[in-house]
Each structure stands twice: as structure tokens, then as C-alpha cells.
Simulated scan of single mutants.
Amino acid sequence: MLRKINHENMGRSNLGWLRSIFHFSFAEYYNPNNINFGMLRVINDDLVAPGTGFDLHPHQNMEIISYVVGGELTHGDSMGNKSTITRGHVQYMSAGTGVYHSEQNLADQPLRFLQIWIIPDKTGYTPSYGDYRFEWNDRHNQWLHMVSSKAGDAPIKINQDMNVYALELEKDKEISFLVAAGRQAYMVQVEGRSAVNGVELGTRDALEIVEEDIQIKASETTHVVILEMKKIAE
């Protein structure tokens, strides 16, 4: 089963310094029929103006992944971590029993990143943070496996049965992705255009995939992120 979500129908917010597209209910955007997709709770496509950002604020019992599309993202937290990542890099935080963090754009250009929240497999984990600077070419015409469960083999491991992949596919090239029985996936068309099993996707569109293998063909150079997970009862 495939279901396309047009970005024009997603939630939106414009605070001046921050423009956001909400894939799921968040902040002032509330839709009782669009709270989550399995254990995937939040994907916010955030555009942050230079010299601004999210000041120190709390999180608890959530696995948080930030994927930078463009610009620079600077993280700080109450555990003493501070780092800056750029295009194609990932930071991840297990909020667990509670942590404060900030996310700032200290550069002179806009920052675009995907803010992803995943419900953990249980509450009460000890908070932790890390980041990973993936090489851009590692996703060129091939799947880059960035995130997995603690039992998986990706460089980033989180407290949930979730796999996150990135891909940059050249125009007219094709690639497959398997979504097995008992599994589902959420695809974000980050940049470019593609056709997935004949379904046309443009920049910032999304696709829900349930127990169906897909074939992606790039209509132009295309950049996607897929979150693949165990199917759970809604």
C-alpha cells in the first residue's frame, strides 16, 4: 500500500525566523487523524534564518534525529555537548529521563534540516547524544544506512526498531527498496523529483509505504530519506 502526502497539504508555521512544514501534528498544527506513522511521531522540515535558532529547551522520552539538508546546525545540551554539523550530517539524541538542548544557526546562510522524533521502545533511558559526519558520496546512487536499532549495524543506533536511509539518485537512474511483510516505511522527497511505483513526488512531498517493495526512478537529481520500521497496530 502506498499513500502520497502532498507537501501543500501538510501543516505550516511561519515565525519569521523559522518557517516549518509539519508532516505530523505539531505546535499549532493539530490533526487528530495525523498524529504519527507507527513509532514515527514528528518530521518537521525546518528553515532557520541566520543568527537564530531554538534556545535551550527540555525533552523527555524521545529519540531525536536531526538531518541537515543545507547550512550549519550547532547543538548544545545540558550534558555538556556542543558541535556543529553541515549538509548530509546527522545528530541524534536519546532524551530519556530528561535533557535540555539548543539548536542554533550561527552561520550567515539559512539552515534547512529535518527534525525527526521517534517514540522509544520504553521510557526511562539515560540521556545520550552523538553526531555522525557521513560522506556525501556514500549516498550517491546507493542507500546509505545511517540509523538502526541497537541490534542493527548502522553507525547510529537508537532505542527503537527503526532504520533510516538516505539516497541521492542521478536523473533517470532507478533503485529499489524492500518493505517486507510486517514492516512499513515513510519516505521524504527532500530535494528533486521522482516516481515511486508510478507515483510522482516533488520536493518536500512524502509517501507512506506499507508491506510493499518500491522502485524509485529519478525524474531529476533526487534526494530522499526513508524511515523503515516494524508495523504496529494503530
Rank of each mutant, 00 (worst) to 15 (best):
I5R: 13
H7R: 14
E8D: 15
N9G: 12
N9E: 09
S13L: 15
W17E: 15
S20I: 08
A27F: 05
Y29V: 11
P32C: 12
N36D: 13
M39Y: 12
R41I: 06
V42R: 03
I43E: 03
I43A: 00
N44S: 12
G51S: 15
T52A: 14
T52C: 12
G53A: 11
G53S: 07
H57C: 10
Q60F: 03
Y67F: 13
G70F: 05
E72P: 02
T74I: 04
K82R: 14
T86S: 14
G88Q: 02
H89S: 12
V90M: 07
Q91Y: 05
Y92D: 09
A95V: 05
S102F: 04
N105D: 05
N105V: 02
N105S: 10
L106N: 15
Q109C: 08
F113C: 04
W117E: 02
T126A: 14
S128R: 11
D131G: 06
W136N: 15
N137R: 13
R139F: 02
R139H: 02
N141Q: 07
Q142V: 08
Q142K: 12
L144H: 00
H145G: 05
H145N: 09
S149V: 06
G152Q: 04
G152L: 00
D153E: 14
A154Q: 00
P155C: 10
K157I: 03
I158V: 06
D161A: 14
L169I: 04
D172K: 08
E174C: 07
I175E: 08
I175W: 04
S176C: 13
F177H: 13
G182P: 05
Q184I: 05
Q184L: 09
M187E: 02
M187H: 02
E191A: 14
R193H: 11
G198A: 02
V199N: 02
L201E: 00
G202C: 09
D205W: 04
E211S: 11
I214E: 06
K217I: 04
A218N: 06
A218G: 03
S219N: 11
H223R: 15
H223E: 12
V225H: 03
I226R: 01
I226W: 03
L227Q: 00
E228C: 10
M229C: 03
A233F: 01
A233G: 14
E234T: 11
